[in-house]
Design a protein around this nucleic acid. Sequence first.
DNA 1: GCATTATATCTCAGTACAGAGATACTTAGC
DNA 2: GCTAAGTATCTCTGTACTGAGATATAATGC
Lengths: 179, 179
Amino acid sequence: MSTPTSARRAKSAPRTARPGTAHAPVPVDERFAEDLKLWVVLSRAYAAIARRSEADIARHELSSAEFGILEALYHKGPLLLGEIQRRILVSSGGITFLVDRLAEKGLVAREACPNDRRARYAVLTPAGRALMKRIFPAHAEAIAKALGGLTRDERRAATRLLRTLGRAAAEEDTTTGTE
Amino acid sequence: MSTPTSARRAKSAPRTARPGTAHAPVPVDERFAEDLKLWVVLSRAYAAIARRSEADIARHELSSAEFGILEALYHKGPLLLGEIQRRILVSSGGITFLVDRLAEKGLVAREACPNDRRARYAVLTPAGRALMKRIFPAHAEAIAKALGGLTRDERRAATRLLRTLGRAAAEEDTTTGTE
DNA sequence: GCATTATATCTCAGTACAGAGATACTTAGC
DNA sequence: GCTAAGTATCTCTGTACTGAGATATAATGC
């Protein structure tokens, strides 16, 4: 998952002798410390919530990516494979693989697009729709509980900040030149 | 990566006829909408920054997990494999694999722990230390740039909120009973 | 000392993807 | 109609992991 380091202090004082002094640590440059800290706490918050979310989803024998597809179809209706791909951020090979597997499970079906014979819709089967109707509310509650460390106002503030942050970071990196 | 859905509206209006009305979308339950939105923007912000971070790291033929190990050793000095494992959140098999590969590249070495013959330290080799000295500042700047969508005050506010959020979510889920 | 339990690392099989290229179709220009 | 370029999906190979179990050592209680 690629979590940046240097958070969470060790629980137990090391009773183990460290290797010789040739390996002394280099302190983190003050100029970057605050920004790196934000990146660390962002990663750790994401990892902690994702872990909870995945644990909930795994109870139904689904991966997070599979659940993401089902949720998109449940809340948005039929979507082209490419639309789903952009929405849940998987590769082109990934979307084919995932829809194949959901189709094997009988939860999703492909339908031809009448206007473009290259394209395919993914649609929920009745079984897929029934599954989501059954499991989605509990999943939403699991997420709500995982976010329970913040008050309602704090959650709103966090949403605003993260939306701004994410939008800016998703922009194409045009600043490769000077500055 | 498991990004939750239902963000980012489609760029182009669909010129494609949707499949029949049997697949009508189900609106998101109002009770959960705000919390799910926070989870979506958190995931997207994380994904966007991680993407930038990985792009920077990949220039040096390193994965994010490898870089995480190097950074931990650079800033903290020698660490037991288990300490690194908890810090960067990989599995026990993963840490063995990653340290093996960094050792093959000549960046890291294992050293015996004098007090516990089960345990091993990972330490930076001179080459590993020189590499980090060379590439870490540019990496820190890449992260800082990726976070540039927020002002300094906003970044501080976000750090505080995410730290609180992450800590609460990382707690063991004790609320499986009532409530 | 000896058995029991805990801990640190390693081994190995399995999995979920990513990403490059192939295929099939559409669109635009001539 | 024909060609060229663009796009949607699929195929296939490769990779970075995860997680269960194995091995070696340590700590604890008797």
